[in-house]
Design a protein around this nucleic acid. Structure first.
Lengths: 262, 262
DNA sequence: CAGTGGTCTAGACCACAAG
DNA sequence: TTGTGGTCTAGACCACTGG
């Protein structure tokens, strides 16, 4: 059984392809396993392999890239630890599906001690469409002069109780058309991934306490001057590229942010 | 040259010690490298090797525990990744010294964009002594009935500006005498480590915004009803044992909490 | 059964540190 | 020069999966 698409040229001479997919440089100062990691990562990033895809086996990769299996193992082990792939004994190695069942909690960790487990927040979209970004968004998203953004303004609620008032800015270049998708019962990050091929890998988050302005208070159903938390988030996709800027106001009486410091 | 204390018995028969320090079970379902990790970790935890100590080389460990060097390498690599040890090519492997130059920022991450780098906060100690813990502290520290705590109440300032008002609770059993140390210009975690052999490994932190009570406002030099952030922290030492409970109020106008979500 | 990843071995060569 | 950790190889055996 022939697996995957090994060039015939590869099979013919039994050695590394003269001008094939091999890109490892044995003379580099960068270790082979690290070079291999980067190659595999970029194959995922550029969509050569998509979420849940089975990728070639250790032996395949070792043969194609002309390295020992141990070197492949080391590269794959690190990618698995970093969450890019999932390995299953007896089955194979798969591109990781970002765990969106938990992505909400990954990136919006409040403490829902009394709430039940699988709550998905409901969003009331107040606005969705192209806008000129505010300077702060332009800066953190590294937009060129005059480049437009999609803006989403929404109210997020749990159990009919408004919890957060949010403004999201996205480069229109990447997310064109997102403003026409109904997101009122969806999480955004799975959509970024599946519809725009832009998974969120990590995020920077900044919190500060403040008092509700009359606008914020009205949206959240609290009084002006009540305590709220202001959260700024910059979310990044592959290669630490910022693709989302989000600023939110959370109700102080319902918000409890939890983080593990390691 | 004889290094470390290999039992003569070990050297005599050239095989694994009949009743020595070897504790690896080759028949266990737990992989050898993982068993070795746990043994090494507990040697650190129990003080057999202290911070900055040089630990035996890969070859030494492989010989003593009767496994291949590759297995030792794997165990050491994971311990290094988890921050328990530091490895230096050509020199050896050392027990990690918790990086207390940064511990303040590790556990109290505000954003000091404009502040200079090596600020150490000054503390004004308002109270330090044995107390009966409040129920919340008793719960999270898992104290037995009637067990006492040391309480430290202090005001932390940067550049003479009060920033946080803090209450710290510690099991007296572990930290007896800490209340007689001058901590006004010191960080607590290095003291826990060096004087009480209790390094802080990680922490759980909970944040919520609220309004300053008159007591908090007075301490922080702000008005009653101004925005403050309330932070609860449970800090853990080896084996996930909770050893510090801390609750703090931070000035909203000077506090900006930063976290990287990965 | 064959193929997969998980563990483990026993070497090799290298860059680096220190005497 | 010796000893260290860092990389890499080429095998071995195992447990697990699925046909």
């Amino acid at each position: 059984m022939q697996k995957y698409s090994l060039d015939n040229s590869v099979l013919m001479n039994g050695k590394k392809p003269p001008t094939g997919p091999a890109k490892l440089d044995p003379n580099s100062f960068v270790p082979l396993y690290h070079q291999l990691k980067e190659i595999l990562k970029s194959s995922i990033a550029t969509g050569v392999w998509k979420a849940n895809d089975l990728i070639p086996s250790e032996n395949e990769l070792a043969f194609v890239h002309d390295v020992a299996v141990g070197t492949v193992k080391k590269a794959l082990a690190e990618l698995a630890r970093e969450g890019f792939i999932v390995r299953r004994q007896g089955k194979g190695t798969f591109v990781a599906r970002p765990d969106f069942g938990r992505s909400f909690f990954r990136f919006f960790r409040f403490d829902l001690s009394q709430a039940n487990e699988s709550v998905v927040p409901v969003s009331q979209v107040l606005f969705a469409g192209p806008t000129q970004p505010p300077p702060r968004a332009q800066e953190v998203l590294r937009l060129s002069m005059g480049e437009k953004t999609l803006q989403i303004k929404r109210l997020r609620a749990f159990n009919d109780l408004p919890l957060m008032y949010e403004n999201v800015y996205l480069p229109e270049r990447i997310f064109a058309g997102l403003d026409r998708i109904d997101i009122s019962h969806e999480l955004l990050y799975p959509i970024y991934d599946s519809k725009f091929n832009t998974p969120i890998i990590w995020a920077d988050e900044f919190l500060e306490p403040c008092l509700a302005t009359s606008e914020v208070a009205a949206h959240l159903g609290i009084g002006q001057g009540d305590p709220v938390i202001f959260v700024e988030r910059i979310a990044y996709t592959f290669e630490d590229k910022p693709v989302e800027f989000r600023s939110s106001f959370g109700r102080g009486d319902r918000f409890r942010y939890h983080i593990e410091l390691r």
